[in-house]
Design a protein around this nucleic acid. Structure first.
Length: 186
DNA sequence: CATGGGATTGACT
DNA sequence: GTCAATCCCATGC
């Protein structure tokens, strides 16, 4: 996608990313679940303002924000909105498209539904670690491609975000309706 | 410099 | 259903 795609309100970008394709080297998957985060609400890392950790979130749109969660997992976000606004879309689940055997090897499981059905799972499957924080989503190495034709008319379901304690009531989670590749937690 | 808390996952009861 | 693993970073002394 072009830079202008990301330079829009985070809720629009989070919804429009459903059905698009994340590509990294030989692996790719269709985005079936996202969440939006914005510096105006306390669940966002950017809520505390500009710090070394949140520098990327307040930077230009179309950049990857990757951070470590619970000391174990790397979580991938796409920075949105103009520079100076701290907003990003969390990638929560993909439907595997290509490089599936590579994903199986990295994840250590074989079932396709277990490869990318969670924010920590999909980064492991695609080989995305903290070293990708701040990299460009327009030029790569990680890129987002437009929806394949089959995903052009996908219905998007909206619901509250998962796994947070603050601002948990906001309906800022977006899913491809009926997908069998969503994350399972609540 | 010490402390505490996660935008999670997988193993176990 | 419960729970531990594990580490970056923000905060407070």
């Amino acid at each position: 996608m072009r830079r202008a795609f990301y330079n829009r309100p985070v809720l629009e970008v989070a919804r429009d990313l459903i059905g698009c394709v994340v590509e990294h080297e030989d692996c790719a998957g269709v985005i079936v679940e996202t969440e939006a985060y914005h510096d105006s609400e306390p669940a966002s890392h950017a809520f505390i303002g500009l710090t070394p950790r949140t520098r990327v979130l307040f930077g230009p749109p179309g950049v990857a924000y990757v951070y470590r969660s619970y000391g174990i997992h790397a979580l991938l976000n796409a920075v949105t909105e103009p520079e100076g606004v701290g907003a990003a879309v969390l990638f929560r689940a993909l439907e595997p498209l290509s490089g599936i055997d590579t994903m199986r090897a990295r994840r250590g499981v074989s079932a396709e539904r277990e490869l990318c059905s969670g924010p920590g799972k999909l980064t492991q499957a695609l080989g995305i670690g903290l070293e990708y924080n701040g990299t460009d989503l327009v030029r790569g190495p990680i890129r987002i491609a437009p929806r394949p034709r089959a995903w052009r008319e996908t219905h998007v379901a909206v619901s509250p975000r998962i796994g947070i304690t603050k601002a948990a009531e906001l309906p800022w989670r977006f899913c491809a309706s009926g997908s069998r590749f969503l994350s399972r937690s609540r």
